[in-house]
Design a protein around this nucleic acid. Structure first.
Length: 227
DNA sequence: GCGACAG
DNA sequence: ATCTTGTCGC
């Protein structure tokens, strides 16, 4: 693959990313979490999108899309590996979320186009990037207490936040995906917490993509409700 | 040249 | 990311 061409595509699309609030709603009614996993040694890419009601944060719908893996994982080029499956899952949704929390960086990326930004631009939906580790940028030492916050900076500009969502847990890396400002990205994620390290949209998407016990229990309860 | 490096 | 049991700490 032509890495230089991908790099230029990133820079071109990054210039289209909207970093200020252009949400299209006062308070959202439906939000979503998106996560991607892999099967069969990496040959199959699986994207899960969970739709939650806001602000109650109950799960109302989920979709799982599976496609043949298109690209290897290369740091800085994750979005090209993950967005095709994400777009497929997005197209399968019966509900239309007004904002999507994507597992990965938004503009906290060397060329300011992490997977959250890339997906948000292609789907034309407001997105926020929530990553579990750092890709680039620097930040001051973070206090141990839950709620500790530091700006994530790179080349004289703030590209995100480092936020300890829970005590004794590694911090989250939160950044603008698309059509959301940095302050809004942080406060919105803070309004999606229920006592765990990860915000609910991400937590549900992760549980669904990995078929976790919490998701299996929800499936049972849901089938009982339908009977 | 060397180290770092989302998922 | 994924492969996987027990184990340490609150």
């Amino acid at each position: 693959m032509d890495m230089q061409a991908l790099r230029e595509e990133q820079m071109e699309k990054a210039s289209q990313i909207v970093r200020v609030d252009d949400l299209g709603f006062e308070q959202p009614t439906l939000i979503a979490g998106a996560d991607v996993g892999f099967e069969q040694g990496g040959d199959v890419t699986r994207a899960a999108i969970a739709v939650l009601r806001y602000p109650s944060l109950e799960l109302v719908e989920y979709q799982i899309a599976r496609i043949e893996t298109q690209m290897p994982y290369i740091p800085g080029f994750l979005s090209f590996r993950e967005y095709p499956a994400l777009l497929k899952a997005w197209g399968m949704l019966q509900h239309r979320p007004q904002l999507v929390v994507v597992d990965g960086q938004g503009i906290a990326h060397p060329r300011r186009l992490g997977v959250a930004s890339h997906f948000g631009l292609l789907a034309d939906v407001p997105t926020i990037g929530v990553a579990k580790s750092r890709l680039c940028g620097q930040f001051a030492p973070l206090d141990d207490a839950a709620g500790a916050l530091q700006p994530l900076n790179d080349k004289q500009e703030q590209i995100g936040w480092v936020w300890r969502s829970k005590a004794r847990c590694n911090p989250l890396f939160i950044s603008t995906g698309h059509r959301v400002s940095l302050p809004t990205a942080l406060s919105f994620i803070q309004s999606c917490m229920l006592g765990y390290r990860l915000p609910e949209p991400t937590r549900w998407a992760d549980a669904i993509a990995s078929n976790r016990p919490a998701f299996q229990r929800w499936l049972l309860q849901d089938s009982d409700n339908r009977v």
